[in-house]
Amino acid sequence: MKKIILFTLAVFTFSVSGYAQKYFTKSGKITFDATASSSPEQIEAVNRSATAVIDIKTGAIQFSVLVKGFSFERALMEEHFNENYMESNKFPKSEFKGTIANNTTVDYSKDGTYNVKVQGKLTIHGVTKDINTDGKLVIQGGKINATADFNVLLTDYGISIPGLVADKVGKTAKISVNCSLELFKG
């Protein structure tokens, strides 16, 4: 009897640690485009040092990015982005914490492309909102490539665009995520 119990315990413990596999990256790419349709110039920036983690067992998925790490073609845009809109000194980070709703349909042990639905909380400019988006996981050779595109309404996150630049900066920003995650050995 005792042996059975010990075995059960061992299985539980093993199963928990065995499946608690996490994939991560610290060089994820996140871009955004807030160009208004009438704008003569592109309002877009890229950040190549996003941190992303996926726990394949629970389907938990989290992203974090330093706002100051967004790089613009025009230095003045970058200044306005940090100073006037994102207030990156006050709110240095943007985060997403959520889950893959259909995590069970993804076979992480097999190469392939899986469409996923992600839901969770997105924090930008100190404001947290629930969001849902479709994304894609491409599993190949033990790596996960996670991509997603979604739009956020800037006023939802307390970012107001003054009338003077409304012809350049749009009301919504399209955010694109492209992260290649590797197994976390920690």
């Binding site: 119990i5 059960t8 315990l9 539980f12 413990t13 928990v16 608690a20 996490k22 991560f24 610290k26 941190t51 983690v53 726990d55 067992k57 629970t58 938990a60 989290q62 974090s64 985060e95 976390f184 920690g186």
Partner: peptide, 21 residues
């Protein structure tokens, strides 16, 4: 056994994966 399983799942839901890496 029950506690260990419960604890494991509970923490998996709430844990801050970002700070872990």
């Amino acid at each position: 056994a029950a506690i260990s399983v419960f604890a494991n799942t509970a923490s998996a839901q709430d844990e801050d994966l970002l700070s872990m890496v």
